[in-house]
């Protein structure tokens, strides 16, 4: 993404300073090399905090280890065991539900909300109103997930919980549920909470993206008689496609990593009904102390996340390249 810009700038720089200043080339090379010194603290810190632990974790995933003594090499045994572990498959299946709740639904709602706030509220009621509404939607995003979990587990509590009380108050008492305690419902309740948590992020990104769009496009379309839906489909969506890619990628990654919400809301329960890979690996590490097995779970999760990130980056780079190409 930066590469295109940099190459352009460097080419321009050469053009300007090339030719007459040939003799300086040697010093330039020396200067460029010594910039690497500035990278030294960062690289060392990364080796110590990220690279070494990550390699250790991957290594441990090929061993049988309880966290004390020395690990016993067991080859792929942990991974073979994973393949037959229904709890493992269940946790990844729940991850798919989380992707729906944290990436797909918030992106869809975020798009409609962003278009409505930007194109409609912003135009007819002033940008202040739009900004206040946007702030309301964004608020859950700054909340620590642990706190959001406390708030919602209390609202969804079976006895005296606000949601059940509300249902009773409006005469729908028969709809009362043990929202987080019923194995058939718990996952959907957690999903609902995650939509609430997540929605602000796509909204804010999309609204920022819309500011880039030339208002004349909308005016022209409006003059041609295009209704709100057609403007949304044929102008808004194609214009902010890069933002949509970015949001979908990051939200999907966040959904695969979700931990705090599950810890605070359900602890993976009832009966594993809301277990997700990160929580599964956490309990395997620290409650069952099967460190090798936990490492295998987190390694699988890591491969998935890194793969997704690479695809996402590729999409983003391609979109930006296309944009650069259009501009020049």
């Amino acid at each position: 993404m930066t590469v295109t810009v940099e190459q352009g700038a460097r080419a321009a720089g050469r053009h300007r300073h090339g030719g007459p200043r040939r003799p300086r080339i040697r010093t330039r090379i020396r200067i460029r090399d010594s910039y690497a010194l500035f990278l030294l603290p960062g690289v060392l810190a990364f080796l110590a905090v990220v690279v070494v632990p990550f390699l250790m974790n991957t290594g441990v995933s090929f061993t049988d280890w309880q966290g004390v003594g020395s690990p016993d090499w067991s080859g792929l045994a942990n991974y073979r065991e994973l393949m037959d572990d229904s709890a493992f498959w269940a946790s990844f299946r729940h991850s798919l539900f989380m992707v729906v709740a944290m990436a797909v639904v918030p992106t869809a709602i975020g798009l409609v909300l962003a278009a409505a706030l930007f194109d409609f509220v912003g135009k007819h009621f002033g940008s202040r109103t739009a900004a206040v509404l946007r702030a309301c939607f964004y608020l859950p995003q700054v909340l620590p997930i642990a706190v959001a979990g406390i708030v919602w587990s209390w609202i969804l509590a079976p006895d005296n919980g606000s949601l059940n009380e509300l249902l009773k108050a409006v005469g729908l008492g028969s709809w009362q549920q043990d929202w987080l305690g019923d194995p058939d419902l718990a996952l959907y309740s957690v999903m609902g909470v995650m939509v609430w948590v997540q929605i602000g992020f796509p909204l804010v990104v999309f609204m920022a993206g819309l500011q880039r769009v030339d208002p004349q496009l909308y005016e022209a379309a409006e003059l041609d008689g295009a209704g709100w839906w057609r403007r949304f489909r044929h102008i808004t969506l194609p214009q902010i496609r890069p933002e949509i890619h970015v949001v979908l990628t990051w939200c999907t990654i966040a959904a695969l990593k979700v931990f705090g919400a599950v810890y605070v809301l359900t602890k993976g329960g009832p009966g594993g009904a809301t277990d997700v890979p990160s929580y599964f690996s956490f309990t395997t590490f620290f409650e069952k102390t099967q460190v090798g097995y936990g490492a295998a779970i987190s390694t699988v999760l890591t491969v998935l996340v890194l793969g997704l990130a690479l695809v996402g980056l590729r999409l983003q780079t391609r979109a930006e390249d296309a944009e650069e190409g259009l501009r020049t």
């Binding site: 990220v50 991957t58 931990f259 890194l306």
Partner: peptide, 13 residues
Amino acid sequence: LANVLPQEALVYP
């Protein structure tokens, strides 16, 4: 990549 790495892959080490 270091940024997107799940913390679960670092936490035990």
